[in-house]
Amino acid sequence: MNKFRECQRKKIHFLLVEDDENHAEIIKRGLDKARISNTLDWVQDGQMAMDFLKKRNGFESRSEPDLVILDLKLPKKNGHEVLSEIRADPALETIPVVILSTSGAEADRALSYKLRTNSYLVKPLDYDCFKRLIDDLSFYWGTWNAPPKDMKA
């Protein structure tokens, strides 16, 4: 871990959209132990995700997320609906979105990419793999990824 000290690190702000409380807990714990400092907001359905992103219905004072981690199977509005609404909104369309789903189905992956997801990840069954995935995810987006300056609305 030390050899990455010279890498320029940013504090990264995640929006986690996940209806399963246990999965949210796994991701949170993974992010806490990640090689990068971060903050996390968690919402439990697709409707709340859109409220959060559009700063309405109680989310008026939230800060801009750097990355949305989006589950597909969600109450009220599913992940694909959320993704397509994000991409259709000029104020949100450039925000990076990573799908993190239990589904490995081709149709889900294909549709997600069609709707311009930045990445598609399948939740690993294995504990160590899941930890590694969260660590890599935060490190990649927090360190290597260089978004445009005016990305945030």
Binding site: D20, N22, H23, I26, R29, K73, S101, T102, S103, A105, K123, P124, L125, D126, Y127, D128, F130, K131
Partner: peptide, 18 residues
Amino acid sequence: ISHDLKSPLVTIQSFLGF
């Protein structure tokens, strides 16, 4: 089914690790 049955398995595997 495959999706929704997998969901609790992810939880079980991870929390066994924890």
